[in-house]
Design a protein around this nucleic acid. Sequence first.
DNA 1: TTCGTATTGACAATCATATTCATTTAAGGC
DNA 2: GCCTTAAATGAATATGATTGTCAATACGAA
Lengths: 131, 131
Amino acid sequence: MAEAPARRQTRQRTAVAEALEAQGEFRSAQEIYDIVRQRGDSVGLTTVYRALQAMADDGQVDVIVRGDGEAVYRQCSPSHHHHLVCRSCRSTVEIDAPDVERWAADVASQHGFRDVTHTVEVFGVCARCAD
Amino acid sequence: MAEAPARRQTRQRTAVAEALEAQGEFRSAQEIYDIVRQRGDSVGLTTVYRALQAMADDGQVDVIVRGDGEAVYRQCSPSHHHHLVCRSCRSTVEIDAPDVERWAADVASQHGFRDVTHTVEVFGVCARCAD
DNA sequence: TTCGTATTGACAATCATATTCATTTAAGGC
DNA sequence: GCCTTAAATGAATATGATTGTCAATACGAA
Ligand SMILES: [Mn+2]
Ligand SMILES: [Mn+2]
Ligand SMILES: [Zn+2]
Ligand SMILES: [Zn+2]
């Protein structure tokens, strides 16, 4: 049914992965691009976009599409989870919500929906930013 | 603390509201723009964007920012709720999830977050679209 | 090493949305 | 109804993230 994508290990993808790893928080493609260049690696912006998307497809990073439409990426633990994000400083907390997972699957199947996915993000202002 | 926005009733906003009401499903600003014009009303695209954003601010419509970054709007029941959306035909089911509401508020306050909001959307393929 | 193809990247193109700013108009007080 | 004023409008322009193109390059299997 599905073919192995067969990703190749390149200098560029390694650089993007390392930049993501060093950051910890959500960053946009443009930000990752800057970080990579500051580290001395030369990677094209287009390639940064493609690398991030590939990693997202492979589940190596989490993606959030912010309200302004910009996508932000973060290296994440491999298991499915959600995020508590500070609107001010963007710091994030990974959260587990088995109950919510179950609820999403249930409510969808009750309405006859197949192939179910979901997005759950909680936003607020973290204690530090609240002054 | 907060000033009354003092929205004015204009021909254009009425047209946008009616178009939304007639649709029922989520529509983008561009789509609403086309619908309004097909109905014979003349409204600028800029105004459609601003009207939709104002209505969203006022809680009269729900907004979802899709994966591609485009925002879609829908006239909604006034109370807070979430959606089960068909990826194929875009039909939506409004869903209530008091448990999820409570969970979101709890997990946020446990981490010291204030001013909490959340997004919860469930996606799938509806029974009709599944063939 | 060789070869096929995945990957790269400079550049142009898209396209949703924001900004500008001169003009129009709703709404409250008279 | 008339005035006044700030809100609203919209055409044009700008913005800015993301995508498409395509020739050049480099993994990695054999
Ligand atoms: Mn989940
Ligand atoms: Mn709704
Ligand atoms: Zn913060
Ligand atoms: Zn459907």
